[in-house]
Amino acid sequence: MATLKELAAKEELFTGGHRLCAGCGIPPIVRLILKSTDARIVATTATGCLEVASSIYPYSAWKVPWMHSAFENAAATISGVQTAYEVLKKQDRLPGGDKEIKFVAFGGDGGTYDIGFQALSGALERGHNFLYVCYDNGAYMNTGIQRSSASPQWGNTTTSPAGAVIPGKVQWRKDLTRIVAAHNVPYAAQASPHNWRDLHKKAEKALAINGPTFLNVVSACPLGWYTKGQDSDAHVKYAVETCYWPLYEIEEGVLKVNYKPKNKMPIADWFKMQGRFKHLFKDDEGAAKLVQIQERVDMEWQRLLDLDGMRL
């Protein structure tokens, strides 16, 4: 695994000059992953913040070959690109000769958990050789903070607003990492850009594997979380420290918890710093909901600990 000095010496493959918000959580994930292999990378991205803001004509932030086609099909699109590569490689028809190329699809939680889920499941099942990276900021941020199936329970979004009767999003979030792992892919993991060593190691591992691999990476969104841009790294640290976003991996069916906080941070301590949960701190009803959320986080965390080291 490379040190930061070594990584910094490698070519920057995602340039500045993109139009993502100040303090956006996505670029550190992209930058690090693009530096996690010595092979060449070809990438695609689902419609969303990352795609729109990085490719406003005539400016592209991508120094790797990159394409976007639509919202729900990043995994299907990369299936086509990767298959073309295999066919052209066999016939010695690759432009610029035979080079090792890794294929990466990026999508937000909307493009991955929801509208792009079918295409993702299909591509995983077919076994294409690619890495899918989900940057999960827990809502449809590009269209203005609407709920996704990754949105946290009782969080405020513009389509699950904290109202007088219904205080935010009713449902618990979809556990996509487990669902992906149930496809029996060779590698699936959860990561946080704050724990950059862990993320880098996971990306290196995933990119070295021949077959479909998946990284679910938590990403802070100052706009949608009602937080300050400067605190984006802190928030994805707390996501891990609270065990809301555990760092774990499932490699060849074996689950491993990569990080166990010594003192688990109470979920309320993190939620309190985010405007999307402020309604939970106003009254007893909110307090009761926070207790329930804590219980569920504890239960999910315990389930992971129980499975640590086990073959699923």
Binding site: T15, G17, H18, Y57, Y59, S60
Partner: peptide, 10 residues
């Protein structure tokens, strides 16, 4: 587009 030209965008 040629890749990476956002470098020219301020």
């Amino acid at each position: 587009l040629p890749g990476g030209c956002a470098d020219d965008y301020e």
